[in-house]
Each structure stands twice: as structure tokens, then as C-alpha cells.
Design a protein around this nucleic acid. Structure first.
Lengths: 353, 353
DNA sequence: TTGTAGGCGTTATCAC
DNA sequence: GTGATAACGCCTACAA
């Protein structure tokens, strides 16, 4: 491009005032006479000055106005989950009043990292605070990095160290409610379809609950186990309708060993299980009852209203944002544990006899 | 917290070297003797120095390593669209080699803005470049803002001014292909279900094509019109299965005026139309043929393989990212127009007689 | 209300 | 291979 961009001193000189005065015109921190303001604005206009350089301003202020959101998955994958989308929505809303934007970050690439060209990392990003999303492994490293940098951080649904605010869910208790509901309806043969167990995301029956390294999965399973200690468990490889469908196919394959109820750990999974039930010639909820978890709107599930646990997805994001805002103001917010609400839809009914 | 964080000069002093030398140890720009490197690293360790402050570094370098991605919708809404998700995936991949991260931004709030406390805006965000996503109104203002700031920008599927690289699709030609396919199959009574017409997102039959202010919608409709000039058009309020279902209900309501084929402007809409057809007792493709657009994987559509136009969603993002990278290196990349590929699935067949 | 001075933490440049 | 110096562009005391 032509020449160097105009700076605030250029504008000040052009307007015949001191740089600090011009600065004040833009920041509005101090009163300025109408005349001066106009002179400065006019000069800026002439020079094509569009306001303070954010880089310089953020160095000076010690704030960049950016909050990093760290995922442990590819973006396309993370946003597949409606709960994540809603959470981001709430988060973006909550940080907006403090003038912050959201920077998408991924967990460090681990060993492979060394060879990788470069990459926007937790260590090099100009963030004022960070939100860690998720429940597993590499996020721990990220947490350590952030903490070392002395950056305020909030963890959503994961374990964290001392004094780090967390946004949690009563997964176990909530799931137990749904199970209890089924028990009251007389169901005795119940199967469980879980979210992924770990990063490997293996699909299939699981032999021991011990293999589970993802908190959410473990907690929800425990809730179901509180009521049905011996229910067989099938793990899905992701939270999606297709995965639920695949699991459902397996569950309903043998007519002699069909469950009368299925506890799915997410609404998407539940939707897939419902479809598999239909394909197997079973009516929902007459022949088989199905519960979900999350309380999101499942696109295309139309006639059904899932019996599920409604979690405050958007609220979770908002709470995280508010915690961030608080920390940025020097306060230290407490962790929050959200409570899910049981919603009785039309996908559960009395056990068939 | 305790005291002020350590700076690179603190580290240098502690290590007994010059600040510039310490800097080089971290940046790796110049060779440093093994001994010096170790001294510096040890000092850093002792002082709890975790690397250069990104704010200062970006001021000095004139680069922040951040690319803004501007949406004209709430995040939760934008990411509802699988094409957008894939695009983001490609984009994040493409900017990663240049060490950039993605900052999520929304178009300015318009008039309401004045009263709003603050807000992370295009004007104040420390971005090196911007990607504008979408096809409509307020993005124009955003474009103006960015251009005024002299920031490189790429527009995805929207019109832009002179010399601004765009990532486009052959929407019209592609849609015409699908229509042509139907015509060859003998279909004469065809209805069209469109994406939203404008920001109002009104749902319903439309009288005149002139009301359309969103490019994608208009272009795809034109493609359909090239083959079926008089096909009735029903506008959906969003690109979703549920909206497609709603539209389908209306299309198939009157048994005497049922179309034998439906051209849906997105795969999600098509999936909804299929479901509505099934509900109306119609078999796909025996009684009614349905085409989509996008070529994304629709979760839960299982037995069907949509006849659709496959667009390179991820590629679009990647291309945008590469264009950004090029601009940041002083080159000026050309606009790119992607070509959709027609895919013949099992949702279209000969017109029933 | 306006101006002066100094520094935020880093890094590019150039001399040694 | 290492060090001194000078910006990068802005903002905030403080003084006038």
C-alpha cells in the first residue's frame, strides 16, 4: 500500500493539538471542548485515521479484549454438538458487555507439534482469559499452560485444580432421575447407550465401567447404575443421531433379548435409537421407552417430544462468560453447578407386559 | 496476585545477558550459543517467565496472528448450518500454517449500538485480516469498516467491491443441473423450496422473485427457473430439517395439486421434505422425487442418499484461508469460483404417470 | 481543558 | 554470537 498508516500523533499534529488530547477525543476518558473534538475528528478524517491501533492500545492497557475458547477437537466436530453451540452462544453473549471477542483455540498438538509449522497457541495468543471446554486429557496440559501464564481461566465440565472456577452439571443425579422414572413405569430390562468413553471413541458393548476416562460419560452412567446396577452398556463413538441409530440396531437385533427401555446419554443418541426402534417394527413408547439427555431441539424429530433431562446449555456458556468477566475485574467467582430438569415427553410409557 | 510478572529484561538481567539476546533465544531468529541458551532458559524458569507477552510482540511486529471471522447471525445460529461448520474447519486449517487463530465476530449491532456498553468490534479488534461470511445487508457496513482500516479481507459468498477477493459458488448453473436432471426424468409438476429470502425470514409461498435479497437464494432459484420458469416457490425461514418438513407439509397437503418433484435449496430442507412426503404416504422416489443442495452428511437421513449438488464446503474455507495468507504476504489473490458436482442419489426417479 | 513526559514489553537493526 | 539502541503506537499521571 501507499505510505505508512496515520498514527494518533499525525492526527494531533494535523489538528494542531497534543497527542494526548487527540487520544482523549477517541477514548472519551476526559472531557474535551467541542471545538477541539471537531478539529481532531476532521484531521482524522483527512488523514484516513480510523481510530487507535488495537495492538498498541492493548499493550498499553494490558488487555486485548480477547477470550480464548479451547477445544480438544476439530472445530467442525466440536460444533456438531448442539450443546456446545448453545454454550458458545451464551458465552459470546456474556463476554460481549466487557467488550471481548472469542478466539477459537485448539489444545496443543502434543508430540506431533514439534514438526508442525507453527500455529496459534495458548502460549502465543494475546488473550485476557480462557475458557476450557471439555472433559478430557489434553485439556489438562492446556490448563497448566494457561495457569503458568497467569491468565484467568474457567473450565466447563471438566476437573480442574484449586481455585479454578468450574461450570458443572449434576449429571449423575439427573440421569438417576430418568432411570428412576423408568423404574416407576415398571421397566426391568433396560439398556444404556453412552457417549464416547475416551479419546479412542471405540464403539460397542463395554465390559467394565472402569474403562471410562471422560467425566460426563462416567457420571451419567453412574446415575443410571444407581437404579439399574446391571444394565448392559453400549458405547457410541460420538453424540449423533447416526451413532444412536447404529447402537439401536444392535440393541434391538435379537427379538428375544430386547430391552423395554433405553437410556441414551444424549438427545441425539436417543433420536437415533428411536429411529432404530421404528425400523425394528417397535412402537415408541408402547413397545420401548427411550430417554435422552440435554433437552436440545433435535432437528427432524418432529412428532416426538423426548423424555429427557433438560440442561441449561446456553446458561452454562453465559455463566462461564460472567465468571470470566468477574475474574477480569479482580474478583474470584465460585464454581457453579447447574441442575438439570426432568422433562416427561412422549417417548416413555409403562413397560409392556 | 503477588508481584508484577517477569519481563524479558528481567530474564536477561538474571541470566547476565542483554535483553535482545534473551529475545532471540525465544524467537529463534538468530543463532545463539548453546551455553547462552541454557543460561537464559534457566533464568526464565527461575523467574516463572513463560515467553514473550503476545501483546507487546504483536505491537512490535505489527501482526497479531489473528484473523477475524465475521458473521451476521448469532453464533449458535450460524453454526447450525453444516456448510458453515465445514467452512470454518477448512478455514482454521488453512490459517494455521501462518500461525493465525480465528476470532469470532458479529456484524455491528447497527443503531442499537450507540447505547450498548461496548462490544468486541471490527474497529477495536487486533486482527490482521478478516473473513466476511454471508450474503447480506450488514456485512456491507462491516466490509466498509475493514477496508477503511486497511485490513485485508476476503468475502465468502457475497458481493464485494473492487479488488476484494471472493469465494464463490456456481449456484445458478449447479441448480440448473439438478432441475435439468428432473426434467429428463419427465417431471413437469415441480415445486421449489428456498432458503430464506431476506433477513426477515418470512415463511410461505412467494409471489415474486423480486423480493429476494439474499444472493444464494436468488441465484439458486434462478438456476431452477432456467428449467422450470413457472414452478411455484415456497420459502423456508431457515435451512433446517424442521423447516423443510413444514414446507413439505404444505406442498403435499392437497392430493390434487401435488408436485411430482421438489427442488430444495439445501440438503437439510430436502431431508425435511422427504420426511413430510413419507408422512403424506408418498414414497421417495417412486411418488415424488426430491433434490437437495450442498452435499453434506445429514445426520439421521440414513437409508436415503440425496440427489444433490455437492459443494466443496471445506475447500471454500481453505481457499479463504489461503487467500488471507497470500494477502498477508503482500500478494493479491484472485477470487475463486467453485463448481458444484451433481450427485445422483436415490431420492429422484422417473416421474410417475 | 490541554500539554508534557514516560513507559507498556518486545524485537529489528546494526555495530561490535 | 552478543549487545546497545531505537522504535512499535498508545495512554495515563501529572503539571500547567
Amino acid at each position: 500500500m501507499s505510505t505508512r498508516r496515520a498514527t494518533i500523533s499525525d492526527v494531533a499534529r494535523e489538528a494542531g493539538v497534543a497527542a494526548s488530547t487527540a487520544s482523549v477525543v477517541f477514548s472519551g476518558k476526559t472531557a474535551v471542548s467541542q471545538a477541539t473534538r471537531e478539529k481532531v475528528l476532521a484531521a482524522a478524517e483527512r488523514l484516513g485515521y480510523t481510530g487507535p491501533d488495537p495492538r498498541a492500545a492493548s499493550l498499553r492497557r494490558g488487555r486485548s479484549g480477547i477470550v480464548g475458547v479451547v477445544f480438544d477437537e476439530r472445530l467442525g466436530v466440536a460444533f456438531l454438538d448442539p450443546v456446545t453451540r448453545l454454550m458458545m452462544d451464551g458465552l459470546s453473549e456474556a463476554v460481549s458487555p466487557i467488550g471481548a471477542g472469542l478466539l477459537l483455540l485448539r489444545t496443543a498438538a502434543g508430540e506431533a507439534e514439534a514438526t508442525t509449522p507453527e500455529g496459534p497457541t495458548l502460549t502465543t495468543a494475546p488473550i485476557d482469559a480462557a475458557v476450557l471446554v471439555g472433559y478430557s486429557g489434553r485439556l489438562r496440559e492446556s490448563l497448566a499452560t494457561v495457569v503458568a501464564r497467569g491468565i484467568p481461566v474457567v473450565v466447563i465440565e471438566g476437573d480442574a485444580g484449586e481455585g479454578i472456577p468450574r461450570i458443572l452439571l449434576d449429571n449423575r443425579e439427573a440421569q438417576a432421575q430418568a432411570a428412576e422414572h423408568l423404574r416407576r413405569l415398571g421397566h426391568e430390562t433396560v439398556s444404556i447407550v453412552t457417549l464416547p468413553l475416551d479419546k479412542q471413541r471405540r464403539r460397542g458393548w463395554i465390559a467394565s465401567d472402569a474403562e471410562i476416562s471422560i467425566d460426563v460419560t462416567r457420571d451419567r452412567l453412574q446415575g443410571a447404575r444407581d437404579v439399574y446396577p446391571d444394565a448392559p452398556v453400549y458405547a457410541a463413538a460420538a453424540s449423533s443421531i447416526d451413532e444412536g441409530y447404529a447402537a439401536g440396531r444392535v440393541l434391538f437385533a435379537d427379538p428375544n433379548r430386547r430391552p423395554t427401555a433405553v437410556i441414551a446419554q444424549s438427545d441425539l443418541l436417543a433420536a437415533g435409537v428411536i429411529r432404530a426402534a421404528e425400523d425394528a417394527g417397535l412402537r415408541v413408547p408402547d413397545d420401548v421407552s427411550i430417554t435422552g439427555f440435554d433437552g436440545v431441539v433435535v432437528d427432524g424429530l418432529a412428532p416426538y417430544q423426548l423424555t429427557t433431562l433438560v440442561q441449561a446449555s446456553t446458561e452454562k456458556g453465559r455463566a462461564a462468560g460472567e465468571a470470566i468477566a468477574a475474574m477480569l475485574q479482580g474478583r474470584d467467582p465460585a464454581s457453579i453447578r447447574f441442575t438439570c430438569t426432568f422433562r416427561d415427553g412422549n417417548t416413555t410409557g409403562p413397560a409392556p407386559r
